[in-house]
């Protein structure tokens, strides 16, 4: 019952086009991007969406390729929902939410084909680069989905390969070569609350959402990954409106990277 009351309260505000913190429905909180937040990562970034903050770092390793793709490198995305970020997070192995976050971020990057996996091959069938993208939530005040995806792409953009000396990585020597990105895929999550579509929800808004749709798009507007979340249904009209909003917001976010 309380959830219903809270939702009614939020909807009342949204009908006046005001959110709990005064924003409009399609407005992000102030965004702050910092690069090189860890000198030991080959690439790193911090993203703040208002009070929400996540850190991302890229570590390169040399690994054996998968047998079905002997001439392609490996990308791994992992999200740590550190209990420091929210009283609701607990220590322990990754839960469903952190796995969903990691997989949505991963697909947004992988399916956009912006990373050339063949370019990550060192010796076909034997040695390839493994690109580990680790994202750590520092403070969850809502919209970890978009914060994590922004942080991942910012850290990847910032990354430089380490040098290989006698077949091994010398982490003290960064090369000048980065991951050649052909595009910048960006994920925007649109939340449906009642009849409204909102972006960048606060924690308080996030728990009242009826349905969400994460849309990853490229510069030209091509959609490269989707994820629907929560229990309410969506129809074609919803999807069209949500994709349109996500695409135009992604364009804005892309200018910040």
């Amino acid at each position: 019952m309380t959830i219903e009351n809270e939702r009614a309260h939020l909807l009342k505000a949204l009908r006046k086009n005001v959110r709990y913190d005064g924003r409009k429905t399609d407005e992000y909180r102030p965004i702050e991007i910092l690069y090189n937040i860890s000198k030991n990562a080959e690439g790193s970034a911090s993203i703040k969406l208002g009070d929400t903050q996540v850190l991302a770092g890229v570590k390169f390793e040399i690994d054996k390729p998968f047998s079905d793709t002997p001439d392609e490198g490996i990308l791994m995305v992992n999200v740590e929902l550190s209990p420091m970020a929210s009283p609701e997070f607990e220590s322990g192995p990754p839960d469903n939410w952190s796995i969903e976050l990691a997989r949505v971020v991963d697909r947004g990057i992988r399916e956009s084909k912006v990373v050339d996996f063949k370019d990550l091959c060192i010796t076909p069938g034997e040695k390839v680069w493994m690109v580990n993208v680790d994202i750590v939530a520092l403070n969850d005040s809502g919209n970890l989905l978009d914060a994590c995806s922004l942080a991942a792409i910012a850290a990847i953009k910032n990354a430089l390969f380490p040098e290989i000396v006698d077949g091994n990585i010398d982490y003290h020597k960064k090369s000048k070569k980065g991951l050649k990105l052909k595009d910048i895929p960006l994920s925007v999550t649109v939340h449906k609350v009642g009849e409204f579509y909102i972006v960048d929800p606060l924690s308080e808004e996030e728990k009242l959402t009826n349905a969400r749709l994460t849309v990853a798009t490229k510069k030209d507007g091509t959609i490269c990954a989707l994820q629907k979340g929560e229990c309410a249904t969506l129809n074609e009209k919803d999807i069209e409106a949500m994709v349109d909003l996500a695409t135009s917001k992604a364009e804005e976010l892309r200018k910040l990277l």
Partner: peptide
Amino acid sequence: MPFSGAGD
């Protein structure tokens, strides 16, 4: 953090 060390 996973990316905080000087090595792997």
